[in-house]
Write a protein that binds this DNA or RNA. Structure first.
Length: 508
RNA sequence: CGGGAUGUAGCGUAGCCCGGUAUCGCGCCACAUUUGGGAUGUGGAGGCCGCAGGUUCGAAUCCUGCCAUCCCGACCA
């Protein structure tokens, strides 16, 4: 038997979970678990276009809830929405040197504007319709926006500009994963212009805090606020602030970034204003963004081997009611009770679904809503109507209990709050358990392989050391935490003196 | 973009080596019995075998090209 045949045979013997009722466990294969979960929870699927996903209605509902919360936070901090073009002239793109260098290898480029019939029934690109200047499909919008801002700013009176846009962007990624990294993704990008450096830095820090607040209080994902090392900095930024989260497999995920761009783009696009003192100065800039990647962060932070676990504040359906009946008469009585409960819950702004499909049995529905991460499930049968009770199950702990119908709406309201808090606490506990210090390179490598997570270690501050560690271990410096404790030490790699620990991890 | 693997009904697959239009399970549809954790029985429908070429009387099967997905690298929100 040739090696090929052996590998062929052994492939066939790998158990298949796709047709099973559940999904692969996290312990067995974390990536597989993630992929199956995204599919079975009906969040998204691959499209016919390489690297691009179809976000399905249930998954998109989660994104919409994120958008609504974030949008309000942006408005509350003085920003307004606008929209800039999908296409960016190539010449704009090349004006900021480090920016173009950072994105050049992953740009989709539009070269023609017309198709034609070749006479043999084939539709081909019309070579006569070549664009004079090629257009880049935006991988981010700094260049087109700063080219536009030039016309908006003359005086300090025109500043600040506090604009956000909700948009899609394209980055031609080599390897893609649903939500975590796709060639096209949805995001928001804030682009602000300020009269002073201090004001811009304040803005970048403010928006980082907005992101951290959102991550912790909506996603229920604890995050480390920090700054990126020069290696990991956004192309064109002076300083990149970030929030970093830890996933259940011990890998870090950058959940949001906020950049202080200095005057780099103002200089590249000649955006100047006359100051109060009558001097002509370049404008100071920030940009900041979060993307549909947050859906991936959400999935990987809380979900378990039974499926998705959603924080109540972002769950499209917060409560599902499943009737259990033997007769039509029972169903009618249950429905009547459910109507009353639904009205009460809706008045408390709790989204509730009454699933009286007669085509699925209760057990099927239980499993289905667990897979989709619905925080609270109420089962309601004839027995409950007799006893004035309901059976209530919470998704986060998978506990079930039978409780009185008395004050049920208030109970559920409190329970949702408790679940939101509980999954945050669990995630925080996980992160605490999986953040450790390493004081030697040996210790560092051992921790990476045996107990993956954040590793706090001394670094000599040089890009060379960072690069070496990355090459040898695949771990990167996720961030230098804000308000980091100063502590004398020696770099785990070079042995040179270091003034503080930084956070390392393997990352998504 | 490099290395490896895969692509057959909605999903998971058999068949491919050795060419003769396709197997099984889940799901789907109908009816009946069921309904407090993924129901059971009986009957039924569903296929450009990833796409395009080529070889051949004949291609899921052999050859070439392309596309997509998964895994491992390099790159990255």
């Amino acid at each position: 038997m040739s090696p090929e045949q052996i590998s062929y045979k052994s492939t066939k013997n790998i158990p298949k979970y796709h047709m099973s009722k559940g999904i692969t466990s996290r312990a067995e294969d974390y990536s597989q678990w993630y992929n199956e979960l995204v599919a079975k929870a009906d969040l998204a699927e691959h499209s016919a276009v390489r690297g691009c996903m179809v976000i399905k209605p249930y998954g998109y509902s989660i994104w919409e809830k994120m958008q609504a919360a974030l949008d309000k936070m942006f408005k509350d901090t003085g920003h307004t929405n606008a929209y800039f073009p999908l296409f960016i002239p190539k010449s704009f793109f090349t004006k900021e040197a480090s920016h173009v260098e950072g994105f050049a290898t992953e740009c989709a480029v539009v070269t023609h504007y017309r198709l034609k019939n070749d006479g043999n029934g084939n539709i081909i690109v019309d070579e006569d319709a070549k664009l004079e200047e090629e257009l880049i499909v935006r991988p981010t919008s700094e260049t087109i926006i700063w080219n536009t801002y030039r016309g908006w700013v003359q005086s300090y009176r025109d500043l600040p500009i506090l604009v956000n846009q909700w948009a899609n962007v394209v980055r031609w990624e080599m390897r893609t994963r649903l939500f975590l990294r796709t060639a096209e993704f949805l995001w928001q990008e804030g682009h602000t212009a300020h009269a002073t450096s201090g004001e811009a830095i304040e803005e970048a820090e403010r928006m980082l805090e907005v992101y951290a607040d959102f991550a912790e209080n909506w996603l229920a994902v604890p995050v480390i606020r920090g700054i990126k090392t020069p290696n990991e900095r956004f192309a064109g930024a002076v300083e990149t602030y970030c929030i970093e989260a830890l996933m259940q497999d011990g890998k870090a995920l950058q959940a949001g970034t906020s950049h202080f761009l200095g005057q780099n783009f103002a200089k590249a696009f000649d955006v100047k204003f006359t100051s109060k003192e009558g001097k002509l100065e370049h404008v100071w800039a920030t940009s900041w963004g979060v993307s549909t990647r947050l859906v991936g962060a959400l999935i990987m932070s809380h979900s378990d081997d039974q499926g998705l676990v959603l924080p109540p504040k972002l769950a499209p359906i917060q409560v599902v009611i499943v009737p259990i009946h033997k007769t039509d008469d029972d169903l009618a009585r249950i429905g009547q009770f459910a109507d009353g409960l639904i009205a009460k819950l809706k008045s408390k702004n709790i989204s509730v679904k009454y699933d009286d499909r007669d085509t699925q049995r209760p057990g099927f529905k239980f499993a289905e809503y667990e897979m989709k991460g619905v925080p609270v499930r109420i089962a309601l049968g004839a027995r409950d109507l007799e006893n004035n009770t309901v059976e209530i199950a919470r998704r986060d702990t998978r506990e079930k209990q039978t409780i009185s119908q008395e004050g049920l709406d208030l109970y559920i309201e409190n329970l949702l709050t408790e679940i939101q808090q509980n999954i945050y606490n669990k995630a925080l506990e996980f992160r605490t358990q999986n953040t450790r210090e390493a004081n030697s390179y040996e210790e560092f490598k051992k921790a990476l392989d045996e107990t993956p997570g954040f590793i706090s270690a001394h670094w000599d501050g040089t890009p060379e050391t960072e690069q070496k560690i990355k090459e040898e271990t695949k771990a990167t410096i996720r961030c230098i935490p804000l308000n980091n404790k100063k502590e004398e030490g020696v770099c785990i790699y070079s042995g040179k003196p270091s003034s503080q620990r930084v956070l390392f991890a393997r990352a998504y």
